[in-house]
Amino acid sequence: MLTLIIGLSIVKVSVENSMSTTGAELSHLQDEVDKYKKENSLLKERYLTSASLTEIASKAATTGFASSSSEINLAGPLPLAVNR
């Protein structure tokens, strides 16, 4: 029991020791994560603006698209039974 406690304590100390100097890498990783989060946020903003119907309608109007004034139905009602 005492051996186990001493052994685990040694393991804990050595693991913590090895991790304690990873601060630089952790800091760098954190910076990278923040950078990509910001990039994602900016890209999302650009995507939402480009995909907005307000923007699309505005661009469509400048390129000559107009609203349709009438609809044509190609598929009309089909009879269930007909006379021969």
Partner: peptide, 11 residues
């Protein structure tokens, strides 16, 4: 938690 240089400590 940070060390003397201000970098974070993972442990």
């Amino acid at each position: 938690i940070q060390d003397a240089t201000g970098r974070p400590i993972l442990s």
